[in-house]
């Protein structure tokens, strides 16, 4: 395992600004953002802050499908969306959108997974291999002949991921994937995503509001607001910053409890505490009042 320092930087963005055509002001404003190979980065921030727009740039949808003024230095595994087409980038960076319903086209799971490789004009044998591989990675072999939209929300989300993985990307971006899942499915999804990352050596960029579900897996958190990056650092540093500056995002309650008691806390140990430990801490807060 290479250390954080020696890992390769695979996304490098400098002074990126973007304005949608016909819009009045920039939705992204002089953004600097790096991602190293193998990182698990969570991007959060109020809605409208530009998170999805950033994902569109990282996959080439901007400016290829959404015109506008795009400036700054961009290198996504040495691609630049202003020079490269979406399908070129798509074989390196995959994007899973929020609503699975709109990204599943075929009537069976396996055909849906094959759709991307078919578009790439791959050999039949290669497509078959990719379909089998994707199905096994997300553990959907049993559902392969079912219609994707008859599956539960959690499984649909997995099909959408399998379909993107069949393009063999090295970076996987997910845009608010848990917003329509129930609590249990969302918790399972967090573990699934972390396993997937480890198994495939993926780099993951996750746009998400439910920070606490993913907190312990993250290398970094990026907080955006009104088109700017407010802070981009290790999870505990970011959370402390957000608490201090009253940034309106979902701070895990565990952190709030510890902060209230004024204890310095060690981010890595946060999840070593059990619920009962927090119960004791919380009761201390109640008694202090």
């Amino acid at each position: 395992m290479s250390t954080e320092e020696s890992r390769k930087t695979i996304i490098r963005i400098r002074n990126l600004s973007f304005k949608y055509k016909n819009a009045e002001k920039n939705v992204l404003d002089t953004i600097n953002f790096d991602v190293k190979e193998g990182e698990f980065v969570l991007i959060t921030g109020p809605s409208g802050s530009g998170k999805s727009t950033l994902a569109r740039i990282l996959t080439g949808l901007i400016p290829n499908s959404y015109p506008g003024d795009l400036s700054g230095e961009i290198s996504i595994m040495s691609f630049d969306p202003r020079r490269n087409k979406i399908y070129e980038i798509a074989q390196n960076v995959g994007l899973v959108l929020q609503n699975p319903e709109n990204q599943l086209f075929a009537l069976t799971v396996e055909d849906d997974i094959a759709f991307g490789p078919e578009n790439l004009g791959l050999e039949r044998k290669e497509i078959k291999e990719r379909v089998e591989w994707s199905l096994s990675v997300v553990d959907l072999q049993k559902e392969r002949h079912k219609a994707p939209f008859e599956l539960s929300g959690g499984l649909q989300q997995k099909v959408a991921i399998a379909a993107v993985l069949a393009m063999k990307p090295k970076i996987l971006i997910l845009d608010e994937p848990t917003s329509y899942l129930d609590t249990l499915s969302a918790i399972k999804f967090a573990y699934f995503l972390n396993e997937l990352k480890r198994e495939l050596n993926l780099t993951i960029i996750l746009i998400e509001q439910k920070i606490d579900l993913f907190f312990k897996f993250l290398s970094r958190i990026v907080v955006m607001n009104e088109g700017k990056i407010l802070i981009d650092d290790e999870p505990d540093v970011v959370m402390n910053f957000c608490i201090r500056n009253k940034i309106p995002i979902n701070i895990p309650l565990q952190l709030l409890i510890i902060r209230t008691l004024g204890e310095t806390y060690d981010g890595k140990k946060l999840y070593d505490y059990q619920v009962d430990d927090y119960k004791m801490l919380f009761e201390k807060i109640i008694n202090d009042r």
């Binding site: 959108l97 709109n102 490789p117 078919e118 578009n119």
Partner: peptide
């Protein structure tokens, strides 16, 4: 709104890359 999202999803899966797509089931 849906049409935009669907067309994004299509492009992200490489649609339009080749004049002729291949078919995995003949």
């Amino acid at each position: 709104r849906r049409t935009y999202e669907i067309s994004d999803a299509l492009e992200l899966r490489g649609y339009g890359f080749k004049e002729k797509r291949s078919h995995w089931k003949e």
